[in-house]
Structures are given as structure tokens and as C-alpha cells.
């Protein structure tokens, strides 16, 4: 992706929780810097608590960094920018008292889309995720995978250039997330959006990403960027390719010691075990 212009610039961003000098102070992120190119899909991966989600929230303006800054198209992020950035969250944030299509339309209402446009656009984005037949269902009537597709449809309906996805498939079983991952690759190749995708899954990261950013154990720093040279959309046979496996193993090596460090710090395993 070198040469393409950076749409998101993360400039030595640190995030700490608790006051300086407080023994309970936690530094979640430490001077992370990263440029994300237009149209790129970047995966953030790292051990639990390394600040992946924190970084995503800072990019989306849902949290403000302790030091450093994020710019989008040259403008410093100071709060949510619904015209440019849409989120897909890990937890189900669909409103249970509204039907599927009304959920999608409500997002547009919040963003300021004219009422006359909402119906058509909502149908379009539900068709894109294959749920046009479930418009009048309530979220409670859908499976976990379907709910996440509706959340994706709601984000797509906002027609933002940037999509931030915070472990959207984390709560799903492996088979469902495999299928959703393939669909996502196809869908995203069509839209040309700039995407930052947080995940725990090594295979998912390699399968989806143009670049994978590996973060260290807390405090999270950028450890390495891995390029995945493979065109989109990616087919299911890429999942079993030796190329994917090679990159996955490389990620595993990088992450292995970080994960052990995290667990020793938490007292979940003993040192040298």
C-alpha cells in the first residue's frame, strides 16, 4: 500500500487510564503511530488488553487519547464523525424495540439522511448482506450471525468512507465466522471502503487484511506490520493456501511471546512454565 495516500494518520497516540502516579494507573497504548491508506483493510491484532479496541475507539472519536492525535483527511479527530466513520461493534447494539429495517433507518436518521431516501438505502444495504427478507423481523428473532450482518448493513447504509469493526464476529461460532468472513471480503472489495478491523483470530486477520498490525502486550505498541499481497475478493481456497498458512504462522510467532507475557502479568500462568 506504499504510495497510496494516507486517509487515517495515527500520530504517537497514547492512552492511559487513571491519574499519573496512581499505582492502579494502566497504560493501554503507548505512542502508537500508523498510517492507513485509502481503500485499505487493516487488521489490528494483539493479546487481550493491548489496547486494540481503545485504538479503534480513538480513531472513531469515541475516546480521546491522553497524548498524540489521530487525523482523518487531515482533520484532527475530536469526537464522532458520523459522516465519515461508521462502526460495527462486537456486542449487539441493535435496538430490540425496532425491526431490522427500522434499525438501519434509525442510523440514517441519526446521521441526517433525508427521510425519503432512507427506505431505499436501507433495503439496498440489507440486500447487500443478504437479509432483505428479514426487514420486518425484530433483532430478538435473529441468530447471532444475522444480527452482526444487520449491524454491518446499518453501518453500510451510512455510506461512510471509513468502516471501523471491533471484533464483529467474536461472539460467533467458527463456522459462522468463516462464512461471514468470506462474504465480508466480497462485499468490501465492491465498496472500496477504508477499513480497520480488530480481531483475535490470526486466520481471520490474514484472510481479510491488506496489512496486519501486530500490537505488543500492555502497554500496546506497534510491534510489526505484515503485508498480505493478495487481491480482493478472496475466495475460500485462500483460507487453505500455503501463503495464508505461512503468514498465519509468522503472526503466531510474533504473538506467542506477547500473549505469554500478558498471562504472566495477570498471574494466569507461571514464568518459565
Amino acid at each position: 500500500m506504499s504510495g497510496a495516500e494516507a486517509v487515517i494518520r495515527v500520530d504517537s497516540v497514547s492512552q492511559a487510564f487513571g491519574a499519573e502516579g496512581d499505582p492502579r494507573r494502566v497504560v493501554a497504548l503507548e505512542s502508537a503511530s500508523l498510517d492507513i491508506a485509502r481503500g485499505e483493510l487493516l487488521c489490528l491484532i494483539g493479546p487481550s488488553g493491548c489496547g486494540k479496541s481503545t485504538l479503534l475507539n480513538i480513531i472513531g472519536g469515541l475516546a480521546s487519547p491522553t497524548t498524540g492525535q489521530v487525523t482523518i483527511d487531515g482533520h484532527v479527530v475530536r469526537g464522532p464523525s458520523p459522516q465519515k466513520v461508521a462502526f460495527v461493534f462486537q456486542e449487539n447494539t441493535l435496538f430490540p424495540w425496532r425491526t431490522v429495517i427500522d434499525n438501519v433507518k434509525l442510523g440514517m436518521a441519526f446521521q441526517g439522511v433525508a427521510k425519503s431516501e432512507r427506505q431505499e438505502r436501507a433495503l439496498q444495504s440489507l440486500r447487500a448482506v443478504g437479509l432483505a427478507d428479514f426487514c420486518d423481523h425484530y433483532p430478538g428473532q435473529l441468530s447471532g450471525g444475522m444480527k452482526q450482518r444487520v449491524q454491518l448493513a446499518r453501518a453500510l447504509g451510512l455510506k461512510t468512507e471509513i468502516l471501523l469493526m471491533d471484533e464483529p464476529f467474536a461472539a460467533l461460532d467458527e463456522q459462522t465466522r468463516m462464512v461471514l468472513g468470506e462474504d465480508l471480503s466480497v462485499l468490501l472489495a465492491q465498496t472500496g471502503k477504508t477499513i480497520v478491523f480488530v480481531t483475535h483470530s490470526l486466520a481471520e486477520a490474514v484472510f481479510l487484511a491488506d496489512r496486519v498490525a501486530v500490537l505488543t502486550a500492555r502497554p500496546g505498541r506497534l510491534k510489526k506490520l505484515i503485508h498480505v499481497e493478495e487481491g480482493h475478493p478472496r475466495k475460500s481456497n485462500f483460507m487453505t493456501s500455503s501463503k495464508l498458512n505461512g503468514l498465519r504462522n509468522e503472526l503466531y510467532e510474533l504473538l506467542h511471546e506477547e500473549i505469554r507475557k500478558t498471562m504472566i502479568e495477570r498471574g494466569e500462568v507461571r514464568e518459565g512454565a
Binding site: 472513531g60 469515541l62 464522532p80 458520523p82 459522516q83 466513520v85 461508521a86 462502526f87 461493534f89 456486542e91 449487539n92 447494539t93 435496538f95 442510523g107 441519526f110 446521521q111 441526517g112 446499518r154 451510512l158
Partner: peptide
């Protein structure tokens, strides 16, 4: 989570 989601979409 509902409030965060609504805010991220620009709810007043």
C-alpha cells in the same frame, strides 16, 4: 452500548 452506538452514528 446502545448510547455509544447512537452517538457514533451522530445522534443529537
Amino acid at each position: 452500548a446502545y448510547i455509544t452506538a447512537a452517538r457514533s452514528m451522530g445522534a443529537s
